[in-house]
Amino acid sequence: MGMPIAFFEVVSDDHERAQKFYAALFDWQVAVDPGMGGYGLVDTGSGEGAIGGGIGPSAAPGDTGVKIYVRVPDLQTSLDRAEELGGTVLVPPTDLPGDYGRFALLADPDGNPVGLWA
């Protein structure tokens, strides 16, 4: 069975503008958390089982853009497999605040960032 897309993320140098843009364009609700540096969790309003997301500030040069996060049973196993297939690890397994689990980032062989979430 394949691994599902579980989350999307938009990272911007002007995250407040991005939050307003996507909220207005798609009628999304963005709940900004000041404790997370202004990161906003997105409710697309698509109902139970819909993929949620986040829109937040850039934390490092070159990290802006749109990413998908794929739910995997084991972050390290997936990172190891990505490297075997020609990808590279960008961020090792890292705890998220609260009860949001853990994440990691990899780059595919073309350099596209892909998030993993467990």
Rank of each mutant, 00 (worst) to 15 (best):
P34S: 03
G54Y: 05
M36T: 01
T94W: 05
F26L: 02
R102Q: 13
E83H: 04
R71A: 14
T77L: 06
A31W: 00
Q19I: 07
G115C: 08
R81G: 04
A107N: 08
A118K: 04
G37W: 07
T64G: 04
W28E: 06
I5P: 00
G49D: 09
D99R: 01
D95G: 15
D110A: 14
D63R: 01
P109V: 03
P61Q: 03
L96Y: 09
T88M: 11
I55F: 03
Y22L: 01
H15R: 01
V91E: 08
E84K: 15
A23K: 01
G53A: 10
T88L: 08
G47A: 06
A6M: 07
M1S: 09
L25W: 05
T94E: 01
R17V: 12
G2V: 12
G65Y: 01
S12K: 05
V11F: 06
D95Y: 06
V11S: 08
A60Y: 06
L25G: 01
S58Y: 00
G37T: 06
A24C: 02
E84T: 15
G38R: 01
D13M: 09
A107V: 03
L75G: 08
G40T: 01
L105W: 09
S46I: 10
L85A: 13
Y39V: 02
D80Y: 07
F26Y: 12
W117T: 09
E83T: 15
S12N: 09
L106Y: 04
D33L: 00
F8R: 12
F103L: 09
E84I: 08
G56S: 07
G98L: 12
W28Y: 06
Y22R: 03
T44L: 05
F26P: 02
P92T: 13
D99S: 12
V30A: 14
A23T: 07
G2I: 09
G38M: 06
G65I: 09
G2W: 07
P73Y: 08
G40Q: 02
Y39A: 01
V91Y: 01
G45W: 00
P113I: 08
V30P: 13
L25S: 03
L85Y: 13
S12F: 05
G53D: 08
P109T: 00
D63L: 00
V42G: 05
T44S: 12
G37Q: 05
E9I: 07
G115K: 12
D99G: 11
A60V: 09
D110E: 15
A31F: 08
I5Y: 11
G49A: 07
D110M: 05
T64K: 04
A6C: 04
V42W: 10
P61N: 02
L96G: 10
F21V: 15
G101R: 02
M36R: 02
D108Q: 05
G2D: 13
A107I: 08
M36P: 00
E83Y: 10
T88P: 02
L96K: 14
D95P: 14
Q29R: 14
G47R: 02
T88K: 10
V32L: 10
